[in-house]
Design a protein around this nucleic acid. Structure first.
Lengths: 237, 237
DNA sequence: ATTACTATTCTACGAGTAT
DNA sequence: TATACTCGTAGAATAGTAA
């Protein structure tokens, strides 16, 4: 029988080592098998403490686990991943800040331009659209907004973004044609003083030029009266 | 092995929030001014706790600070930055892995050299030997193999290792002489295509030079016909 | 083997306060 | 104001052990 989940507030840093240890086993992508003794040994605490901490992580919905005969299968939940990503972002921000100012947010700035129409073609495939919808908080408009990156800092942030954690949609084949994997980073698009939920998408983590593609719920250009050459900012979450 | 000192050990995760808060103020690049009350408020602890934690961070060389009339100027030291980077790298690794096994091998490379014979002296104490045996999968030979680290990457990995979770053997007193705490990291020693279970031992998490000490089941030099100057690799688990 | 309970030890927190 | 001490206490960690 499932135990009742009493929502509990925990301080992530008290559990960071344990979560990282589980993550290193692969617990972010799939359930991994371990025991409280092994985990305790790994992070330098007792079996009992590991047990207690696992219980707390479970009650706070940071992990789910199934007890097997000799141990647990443990998987970090999206909530747990989000907590880890939050720490990651903080560290990224302060470790990569150059010069004096630490900006509260990581920003990618660019000017609106017109792409080759490929974005619209791909985004018109319902397999892509459905997957994007399941990853994001919105159903994207079947087209992309292209931004040309100008400043070095934006390019660097983009490169860094490519190496940072992301969701992605799976490749699929349709009518003999292969549609590849696409990585997705949820962001906000700053338009005037409005903050629009959006996502930066990119097919490849290892290559890029200075142009990026963005999807959002609406067709940005018409909905917000944006035209080529306008400068927009993307705020990473 | 150097005579172990009674130096203050801290667990980075207990101080992560505070270090991140200081980092957000810019404390990685320059000394920043703050008070214990302000820092406490920022991370949700009391002024007293912030004060105590700052003192510990200082004693562990994670920060330096100067007391002014109404607060401190605080700067995170390279050691502190390395600790933050270590957490960052861990998170980066596990959050960016795509369905694959996490298997980034961390390697420390060095050339065999002859130590001062202290290692053999310490390792000849049965209290040490017994404790090592209980922590490791083997009963160590009562002596150490010394490696001189040459490459920057090896030194960096060693520094990182020092800040990572470890087992340790407890200090003890014998015939009026104090034998200190020693930290232990199980590793593998690569000799040709053989992978020997070994352990890196070090008396101090906060200080090091470019020489490391390794223990294994056998006397490495005679068993594997190793001589001074030979280059060996240590693979961290 | 495990997990995780209870009892006990111990550490870390914050209140009060000296400087 | 500051920092940082002492100290009572809450809760975290571990030992012992049941299931």
């Amino acid at each position: 029988m499932k135990k009742p989940k009493n929502k509990e507030e925990i301080e992530i840093s008290d559990y960071l080592n344990l979560l990282i240890a589980i993550g290193k086993m692969g617990g972010i992508r799939r359930p991994v098998f371990s025991t409280t003794s092994e985990l305790g040994r790994t992070v330098g605490i007792s079996q009992q403490s590991a047990s207690r901490k696992l219980t707390k992580l479970e009650n706070s919905n940071y992990i789910v686990r199934n007890y097997k005969q000799r141990g647990n299968t443990i998987k970090i939940t999206p909530i747990g991943v989000a907590a880890l990503e939050h720490v990651f972002t903080d560290l990224w921000m302060i470790l990569s800040a150059e010069g004096r100012e630490i900006s509260e947010k990581i920003v990618i700035k660019g000017t609106v331009c017109t792409g080759m129409g490929e974005g619209a073609y791909y985004m018109s495939q319902k397999e892509y659209l459905n997957q994007f919808a399941s990853l994001l908080e919105f159903e994207p408009y079947p087209g992309t907004l292209n931004l040309q990156l100008l400043e070095d800092s934006s390019l660097r942030n983009f490169e860094r973004l490519l190496r940072s954690p992301s969701k992605f949609i799976k490749e699929f084949t349709k009518e003999g044609r292969r549609f590849g994997k696409v990585f997705v980073w949820p962001t906000y698009l700053l338009i005037g003083n409005r903050k629009i939920s959006a996502a930066l998408i990119h097919p490849d983590r290892t290559h890029h030029n200075n142009q990026i593609e963005i999807i959002a719920k609406e067709h940005i250009k018409t909905t917000y009266e944006i035209k080529d050459g306008d400068e927009l900012e993307l705020i990473l979450q």
